[in-house]
Design a protein around this nucleic acid. Structure first.
Lengths: 218, 218
DNA sequence: GAACTGACCATTTAAACAAATTGGTCAGAA
DNA sequence: TTCTGACCAATTTGTTTAAATGGTCAGTTC
């Protein structure tokens, strides 16, 4: 009976945080990677932080690279989710595009300020991580294509090729972020920087939308 | 008389190549910097290449950084010159913008294939060189502003703020180049790459122009 | 049998030191 | 005025050694 109570108690505490071990590891890794960068965070540190053996980490994740990948994909999934919901709720394609641009910028700021993007990640991503990013961009592209197609249908926007237009738009956005980072040699983005970049991104989005709304005048 | 002939002869040979020593040094440096990168080219190598003493280089250029700066500014001046002429000859602003974009791309290809831009230049430019690039971008901006203003006058293009529009356009162009380089991890640009990038840049320029030509429909 | 561990290993990385190379100077020769 | 060899401080490069790291595995623990 004592045994049963103990067991029951343990089950309860185990359920209350609603996180299994893999999630705990993921969170710790996320925090430490954000603190020191993935390269400067050892598996030992993560294990110590969780008061568990390093070997245990390898029970849940095959290697460090896959752990890092899992952290990144978790964040990407979260972002894509909120993005999708935001778009679904909105009817006007032009407005959706504008909202995408600013949401994406906010995610960018988050990544930069966590050191996930920038000079620190110079020994740039290994193949596995690069694949994650590529897949993420493809998902983004699909979302933007959906927006453009909606605009196409109601005759508001016109593009010969939705895929190309979406690619171009995303590359322009990405390019502006990249140039902004390079121009200012930033390691973190404060409110002032963010305001400036938002302004530029909004302006670019606006012109892009108008460019797609353009009608030949006869 | 013999002395006079000798002197005369020397003056002639000196004029024929039409290059003084500083130019010779500049050319050698340009070639070697292009070959090995500025950081991996020593002043000794440049001097040896010219069969002169290293100390002589310092008679013409105060230090290595300024020599590198001179090389870069020489190239920039040449590019800006051809650009300016190309624009002056053209009457249609939209067409001028399109031509600028492609000319600028060609200069970009030149710089990349010379190793002047890309992963090799990671310990990125010191203050002096950064200033040169900044000045170059300002000159570019002025040129684009001229184009936009011409469009403004004949009512073809409309922008609230020519300066901002020019900045945005240049940042978009720069961003696309940057993204292209990062995406493909390129060290040199072949014809296939170039064609692809040209296409994208042309498409972006087109949408940008249409965005500025947009008229509110009532 | 699933969850976990300490001890172990091969490979990277860091530290420490010496040797070579580098950017830059200068008195003086041509 | 143009150019040089000899020279210097500082950085880069090579080399060796020690420590730390990612990863494995036989074997406990529950």
């Amino acid at each position: 009976m004592l045994y049963l109570r103990l067991k029951f108690f343990e089950v309860v505490t185990d359920r209350e945080p609603k996180e299994d071990k893999a999630d705990l590891i993921l969170s710790a890794a996320q925090r430490l990677f954000g603190l020191f960068g993935a390269e400067k965070t050892s598996m030992r540190e993560i294990a110590d932080d969780l008061h568990m053996s390093k070997a245990s980490l390898y029970y849940y994740f095959p290697d460090k690279e896959n752990l890092y990948k899992a952290v990144i994909e978790k964040e990407q999934a979260e972002f894509l989710d909120t993005l999708e919901k935001d778009i679904q709720g909105n009817k006007d394609p032009a407005e959706s595009l504008r909202r995408y641009a600013l949401n994406r910028l906010s995610y960018f700021k988050y990544l930069v300020n966590l050191g996930r993007i920038g000079p620190a990640s110079i020994p740039d991503f290994k193949p596995l991580i690069a694949d994650s990013f590529k897949a993420f961009r493809e998902k983004e592209k699909k979302l933007v294509m959906q927006i453009l197609e909606k605009g196409e249908i109601n005759g508001q926007l016109r593009t010969n090729n939705t895929y190309e237009a979406a690619s171009l738009f995303l590359d322009i956005m990405r390019g502006l972020r990249s140039v902004f980072l390079n121009n200012n040699k930033l390691v973190s983005i404060n409110d002032e920087d963010y305001k400036q970049l938002s302004h530029q991104v909004a302006a670019a989005t606006d012109i892009f939308i108008k460019g797609l709304m353009y009608k030949e005048l006869k």
